[in-house]
């Protein structure tokens, strides 16, 4: 066993410190050390997107990052999407309203990918949505309702004046 190191980073708006081993992935530290199990493991090699998180606002697979690589950086996981008063992020609400999940295991990853997309392209086309979600596999829905939910959020937000971001990142 190698020496454990202290990892300090900003997680969902809060500064966190956790002991981890050098070979632990960010996904393992989130799930096993911090007990944040909303980030899912579907394949562990970057092919399914279930573990997607935003690292300094950039969409990444947490299974392909060593935890120590995020030293001093800022991370958003699905647990940080809703507002602290419990109000769901518009994407979370849209996924519910559109029945865009069946089993729900891929949903956290999709939500993070969709957020990354809308942060960069507030009014995407359908093909842009599909491109940004292509790294997230869903086996239940055929993607139809997921794509509609994301497009619906984009249209709704475009029709409204900008408001304070629902998320700390």
């Amino acid at each position: 066993m190698r020496k454990k190191s202290v990892l300090e980073f900003t997680l969902n708006g809060e500064t966190r410190a956790v002991l981890c081993e050098p070979q632990q992935t960010l996904l393992e530290v989130l799930r096993d050390e911090l007990r944040l199990t909303g980030t899912k493991e579907g394949c562990s090699n970057g092919n399914c997107g279930a573990c997607n998180v935003l690292l300094d606002g950039v969409l990444v697979n947490s299974c392909l990052i060593l935890a120590l690589e995020v030293q001093g950086r800022t991370l958003l996981t699905v647990e940080g999407l809703a507002r602290s008063d419990g109000t769901l992020h518009p994407l979370q609400q849209a996924f519910l309203d559109h029945a865009a999940l069946q089993c729900g295991i891929c949903t956290p990853g999709f939500l993070l990918s969709a957020k990354a997309l809308l942060d960069e392209h507030p009014l995407p086309t359908e093909s842009q949505v599909r491109f940004w979600l292509a790294g997230n596999l869903c086996r239940c829905t055929g993607y139809d309702k997921i794509v509609r939910a994301v497009l619906d959020v984009a249209r709704t937000q475009a029709a409204q004046p900008p408001s304070v971001s629902a998320t700390p990142v």
Partner: peptide
């Protein structure tokens, strides 16, 4: 009708516990 599913909020917030989430 098309109501929101009862387990929906748990599943979009990451709170729902799946097989590997148990400790």
């Amino acid at each position: 009708t098309r109501p929101v599913r009862p387990d929906g909020v748990d599943k979009v917030t990451g709170r729902a516990l799946y097989g590997a989430d148990l400790s």
